[in-house]
Design a protein around this nucleic acid. Structure first.
Length: 258
DNA sequence: ATGGCTGAGCTACTCAGA
């Protein structure tokens, strides 16, 4: 089963890229972030026509997350945390994979820049609430899959020039510690688990030729609870969509489980 | 290189992204 996470930076601006990607890669489940539309303007039919069910938690102009799936996702929830700014950043649901009931947690973590502002405080508060929510969820179901745009550079290897980001909301130790805190609850960063030394990225800025120069960072992640590690078949960052015309600034991360 | 690009909303320009 292919489960893919992709920050598409507007589902409507990106619809042709996304549909072409689906036809080529044939995901079972596609977890989207930054759909940048309210529910009523979501392109439901385009996904339905390819045989997918759609679960949307939208917001006008900004943020927004969605689950596109070939199989039914049960108990969809849009209130995993109480978001202090009422932004649409988490959608969760359950799937059955053989004997395991797996909770999918699709997230779009706040950016948090600039760091001297309320935006950074919002990110910290959001992550604090999220970690509490994960603890609570773990007491009910040990099979958790957290995927999405974390807006966290976990380690120095995960960005082209760490010095530029060590005092940034994506790379500050205080934020990276939140990521470690999550791992310490009993999760693995699956890309890093399978690629100990590899320097690969999931995001490249639009400007300054960042893509061409490979000035990127790895901020989109799959965290699987330890009980699910035995189910992993493969994980890869698919850079191809970032090379297309009118791309998202993020590229998909593709997990295959059995 | 605290943004030189992109998108939404709107229809001139701001906000947001990372």
């Amino acid at each position: 089963m292919k489960i893919i996470s992709w920050n598409v930076n507007s589902v409507r601006a990106r619809i042709n890229n996304i549909l072409n990607y689906i036809k080529e890669i044939k995901p079972d489940i596609l977890l989207l972030q930054e759909i940048k539309t309210q529910d009523e303007n979501f392109p439901y039919n385009e996904f339905k026509n390819l045989g997918y069910l759609t679960y949307v938690y939208g917001q006008k102009s900004y943020n927004g997350v969605a689950i596109i799936s070939k199989i039914e996702v049960k108990n969809i929830s849009k209130n995993f945390i109480k978001d202090s700014l009422n932004q649409s950043r988490i959608i969760t649901g359950e799937i059955q994979v053989k004997k395991k009931k797996i909770e999918l947690i699709n997230i779009y973590v706040p950016n948090g820049n600039p760091i001297e502002t309320a935006k950074y405080d919002y990110k910290k508060d959001w992550l604090k609430k999220f970690i509490l929510g994960i603890k609570k969820k773990l007491s009910k179901n040990s099979n958790l899959l957290i995927a999405g745009d974390f807006n966290i550079i976990p380690e120095e290897i995960d960005v082209y020039d760490f010095k530029r980001y060590e005092n940034d909301a994506l790379g500050k130790l205080e934020i990276r510690k939140k990521f470690r805190e999550l791992l310490n609850l009993g999760f693995k960063d699956i890309f890093r688990l399978k690629n100990k030394e590899k320097q690969e990225y999931t995001f490249w800025d639009y400007f300054a030729g960042s893509w061409q120069k490979n000035y990127g960072m790895r901020i989109d992640h799959f965290l699987l609870s330890n009980s699910l590690i035995e189910n992993i078949k493969s994980i890869r960052i698919n850079k191809n969509p970032r090379s297309k015309i009118k791309p998202s600034d993020h590229t998909p991360v593709e997990l295959e489980i059995i």
